[in-house]
């Protein structure tokens, strides 16, 4: 066989000792990514993307911008500052606290922003009324989305507790907060029969 790796003079006593993994001789990702992007451009409907988002009213764009700016702030803070700063809860203890029902450091950073707190509270306040006004299929879809995001946040926080330095997990968590805000703003904007 050509290229199962360099000449390996290691001796093995069982076939199970052979490593199933063989590193490709070159990075195949750039070509994979190029093909994925090409397919996206030619047939966006076939891609694993969510439904196209409608343009948001300026007020909710502003709310989303606040979330984004807080997220960036949190992201920078968590990326650049060591976790063991005096007086700051470590990610592990924060995740443990989450599992016990208390807010994490990330939660605290979010809710400490008054504008975000106010806007999110307003959205949550009107959520039930907005949901009641939606057709049943749309209502079920929104509730399922919010529940999925809640589970995702819990899973990510739990995973971060075990792997606090994982930058991707941190980013995914921030993205999930933003996704939640996006859904809430979409629901808010669903009046006047525009639907979700």
């Amino acid at each position: 066989m050509s290229g199962t790796g360099s000449a390996d003079e290691r001796r093995v006593g069982s076939l199970r000792e052979l490593s199933p993994a063989v590193e490709p001789p070159r990075d195949l990702w750039p070509q994979i990514e190029a093909r994925i992007n090409a397919e996206r451009r030619s047939a966006p409907a076939a891609q694993p993307r969510p439904a196209r988002a409608r343009p948001l009213p300026p007020r909710w764009l502003a709310a989303a911008a606040v979330v984004a700016s807080v997220a960036v702030g949190v992201w920078i803070g968590r990326s650049l500052l060591p976790a063991a700063r005096p007086g700051v809860q470590s990610p592990i203890s924060a995740a443990r606290a989450t599992l016990a029902g208390a807010p994490t450091a990330l939660d605290v950073a979010y809710v400490s922003d008054r504008r975000y707190q106010r806007d999110r509270a307003a959205l949550m306040k009107s959520l039930q009324a907005r949901l009641a006004a939606l057709p049943q299929p749309a209502r079920a879809k929104v509730m399922a989305s919010l529940a999925a995001m809640q589970r995702a946040k819990q899973d990510l926080e739990s995973a971060l507790g075990k792997d606090p330095g994982n930058a991707l997990l941190q980013e995914l968590l921030v993205n999930t907060y933003q996704d939640e805000m996006r859904v809430l703003t979409d629901v808010q904007a669903s009046d006047a029969g525009r639907g979700i």
Partner: peptide
């Protein structure tokens, strides 16, 4: 069946 070799063999030789 198991896949144990009675005598250890070089990886390259088994792969071949």
């Amino acid at each position: 069946c198991g896949w144990t070799l009675e005598t250890p063999v070089e990886v390259q030789e088994i792969e071949a």
